[in-house]
Simulated scan of single mutants.
Amino acid sequence: MFHRVAPLNRHLLLAGFTFSVLQAAHADTVSVAVAANFTAPMQKIAAAFEADTGHKAELSFGATGKFYAQITNGAPFQILLSADDTTPTKLEKDGKAVAQTRFTYAIGTLVLWSAQPGYVDAQGQVLQTGDFKHLALANPKLAPYGLAATQAMDKLGLTAKLQPRWVQGENIAQTYQFVASGNAQLGFVALSQVMVDGKIAQGSAWQVPAQLHDPIRQDAALLLPGKNSAAAAALLKYLRGDKARAIIQAYGYSF
């Protein structure tokens, strides 16, 4: 049986359809260089961002140091989500980032992690007493989490003892894989890589005290190719919103 749509409902349907068409018409894609440690939360944020705004975030993940080299050599990224606060500052001074667009989107946490339950103790004493052969960390010249790891070992007076056992990943994602695969018995990774719903998802971990290394202040910056992009502006605004911040906090970051 045919049911006639009431005028009011017809108007609501038309308004909803019109909004969807307008949203699609103005939807755009923004190219984002994302620090490897921020992979999981950014994938969730990008999905929510697209659902809420219609804009699509095209994500590339890697080491901040490599992104800096690519951007200075003309890579057309529109936004950088760095693993530190110094790289966006340098890009701004280099004229590669738009002035006064930098802000801290997250403060990261370094952890010593093993895929083996009970292997890493709550005080990190395993660094001094463990019989491990390999200790994984990200390349400190490219990855801020790797730099933080070397600073922590320096302050603990363990660099000379542990350096022969280092296995360096190109970025924090590769470092995580070294440990997850068992090729390294333990390693320094980002808390966000091993935390799910506020708990360590597997294995064992020691949260490295913040006073043992420089703050891992992760800054975002609008790059020159994104200067006139509505999608880029929308994403930077979205990162500061409640929905994105809730996702970020769920992965162990602070602000």
Rank of each mutant, 00 (worst) to 15 (best):
Y68G: 08
G203L: 10
N183I: 07
L127W: 10
T175N: 03
A180C: 08
G95T: 10
L142D: 04
A160D: 15
A160R: 10
P140K: 01
Q125G: 15
T129C: 12
T87L: 03
V194A: 01
K90H: 12
Y105S: 08
G130P: 12
A83W: 00
L158E: 03
Q163L: 14
A152W: 01
K161W: 12
A184K: 04
W206T: 04
L127T: 11
L112D: 01
T109C: 03
A205N: 07
L158A: 06
G118P: 08
Q168G: 04
L80G: 02
L135M: 06
W166Q: 05
T109D: 07
N139L: 07
L135N: 00
Q151S: 10
T87Y: 03
D131K: 12
Q70P: 08
D84L: 01
M153V: 15
D94H: 11
A149D: 02
Q163T: 15
W166T: 11
L112H: 00
L191F: 09
D94K: 05
I71R: 00
A75H: 06
G169Q: 01
I107E: 08
D154S: 10
Q202S: 14
I79Y: 03
K161M: 15
N73E: 13
G182W: 09
Q151D: 13
H134K: 15
Q70C: 09
N139E: 13
E92N: 07
K93Q: 15
P209G: 08
T89K: 07
L158D: 04
K141D: 15
H134R: 14
A136M: 04
P164A: 05
K96F: 09
A106I: 09
V98F: 07
K199H: 12
V111Q: 01
